[in-house]
Design a protein around this nucleic acid. Structure first.
Length: 195
DNA sequence: TATACGATCACCT
DNA sequence: GGTGATCGTATAC
């Protein structure tokens, strides 16, 4: 039940990404608690990472990535989807971890509502799907996960290093280096990892 | 102002 | 495996 503190996020993005696996993402809607275990993430690290939204410098859109760690970076994409990231590293260095999939734990009925009755397996097995299931939209951009009462992280279950798989990131269009680095991490064999 | 496109999803063949 | 939906953002005129 312990909430993840600022120190957790204020570290190297790859360390935060790996250790977010198995932690619990909590969303509170009208005092109803929804939660899921994080089972898949991707790291986006700095202006030198061609796939990172900060690759072309600071803009109003990616502003939050440059801010203090432990805040939510939410963006709108493809004209209809939202994705949730957690800001990492020190203030001034733009980096974040994209939450790509959850294993639903609590509040499944509300998630099914938000996902128009999709099978449980498809409630939160993708970055835009989990935002839809948890009703996370642009108004959550910049929210501090260390103090918010409606969106935060709690300690989940312990994950062994052998459980963690790594692969190149999915869906990005960038140079060969960005497309090849294994900065996607997931729990091997988990039913809720995307595709 | 105008245009091209994206860290996706759902549905088609 | 392929494609349309749909619009904010970045970049170019």
């Amino acid at each position: 039940m312990a909430r993840l503190e600022r120190d957790f996020y204020q570290r190297s993005t790859l360390a935060v990404a790996r250790e977010l696996l198995g932690q619990r993402l909590v969303r509170v809607i009208d005092s109803e608690r929804l939660s899921g275990l994080i089972v898949e993430v991707e790291a986006y690290i700095g202006e030198d990472d061609a796939a990172c939204h900060a690759a072309r410098g600071r803009t109003p859109r990616n502003e939050v990535m440059y801010g203090p760690p432990g805040h939510a970076y939410v963006y709108f994409i493809y004209g209809m989807h939202h994705c949730l990231n957690v800001v990492t590293e020190g203030e001034g260095f733009p980096a974040a971890v994209l939450i790509r999939a959850l294993e639903p734990l609590v509040g499944l009925e509300i998630m099914r509502c938000h996902r128009s009755g999709k099978p449980d397996r498809e409630l939160t097995n993708g970055p835009a799907k989990l935002c839809q299931a948890l009703a996370i939209k642009m108004d959550f951009n910049g929210v501090d996960l260390c103090t918010s009462e409606v969106l935060f992280m709690e300690e989940g279950r312990r994950v062994a290093q052998e459980e963690i798989g790594a692969s190149p990131r999915i869906g990005i269009k960038a140079d060969e280096l960005a497309k090849s680095v294994p900065w996607r991490f997931y729990l091997q064999g988990n039913d809720f990892v995307s595709r």
